[in-house]
Nucleic acid binder design. Structure first.
Length: 273
DNA sequence: AAGCACACCTGCTAGC
DNA sequence: TGCTAGCAGGTGTGCT
């Protein structure tokens, strides 16, 4: 579900609505939600600490606590962070962890597929060693992109989704970026002329920034929502993703659907070469 | 290095 | 109405 724009939207919401609050109690009911450590130890570590900042790298979200502790969150396919009033009726189904805040509200971790997870980590964040630069904040210039792609022989879609090349792009935005750049999903880096590489570089920045501005993509299954449970609107701007057989918004010919690396992928054979 | 299959889960939908 | 197969935004491992 959530890719960089969705995680960034949640991060900004946390900064606006949760920063400065203190965790006064915590509960972990999901058996898989806190799996890198003892859930009891996790509860003990977060309790009594104040949120001092929220950061993101790719699809990883971090909450900085006073005293140097840091909580990592990965939403994977179906995770949500929801801010709810303490007296909000019943708990949402698949709520696996709750952090009660001194503001009277609670931060709920909801995740039907239970792939997502929470864990406490250190400042060194060794789990991010294998992850490349953030696709939005650390994209850099065209030459940096060229260096990150050079020597790679996979197709562009596969490379964009490879988190060690660039962190944050998933199935939706890789298709949208390549449509914007006018490039086929299976093109390889060594086949790109300089102007094509430049188009790719521009497309990455534009597509991700526009999606963040639109507060992320909420698809038909309603999985992604922001901290207050509201949908994003970036899906209205999708040019190809999930638009198989519908007319291309640029040329009117039907959008094609193929499998790339086992993932449903969309492109326009006329607009992308 | 790359490209598979597979694993982790639940929920929804299309088709019979 | 009810069953089943297939599919879904992500990531990690292990095998060619």
């Amino acid at each position: 579900m959530p890719e960089l724009p969705e995680v960034e939207t949640v991060r900004r919401d946390l900064e606006r609505y949760v920063l400065g609050t203190t965790v006064v109690g915590a509960e972990v009911t999901g058996t898989r939600t806190v799996r890198r450590q003892d859930p009891v130890a996790f509860i003990d570590e977060v309790s009594g600490h104040r949120f001092e900042g929220f950061s993101r790298r790719g699809k990883y979200l971090f909450a900085q606590f006073d005293g140097g502790k840091r909580m990592a969150v990965h939403l994977r396919m179906s995770g949500q962070l929801l801010l709810r009033g303490r007296h909000d009726e019943l708990r949402v189904k698949h709520t696996h962890a709750v952090l009660d805040l001194d503001s009277g509200e609670s931060l709920h971790f909801v995740d039907p597929r239970t792939f997502g997870e929470l864990w406490m980590t250190t400042d060194s964040v060794e789990e991010l060693n294998h992850i490349g630069p953030d696709a939005l904040d650390e994209l850099g210039d065209v030459d940096r992109l060229r260096r990150r792609l050079s020597g790679r022989r996979s197709g562009l879609k596969t490379l964009l989704m490879n988190q060690s090349v660039l962190a944050g792009i998933g199935n939706i935005y890789s298709d949208e970026i390549l449509f914007r750049a006018g490039l086929r999903l299976t093109r390889t880096p060594d086949s790109l002329a300089d102007p094509e590489l430049a188009q790719l570089h521009v497309a990455i920045g534009e597509v991700l920034r526009e999606a963040v501005q639109a507060r992320g993509s909420s698809l038909a299954d309603g999985q992604y929502v922001d901290l207050h449970g509201r949908s994003g609107t970036a899906q209205r701007q999708h040019r190809v993703y999930a638009r198989g057989t519908q007319p291309c918004r640029r040329c009117d010919r039907p959008v094609d659907r193929i499998k790339v690396g086992g993932r449903s992928s969309f492109f326009c054979a006329n607009c992308q070469s």
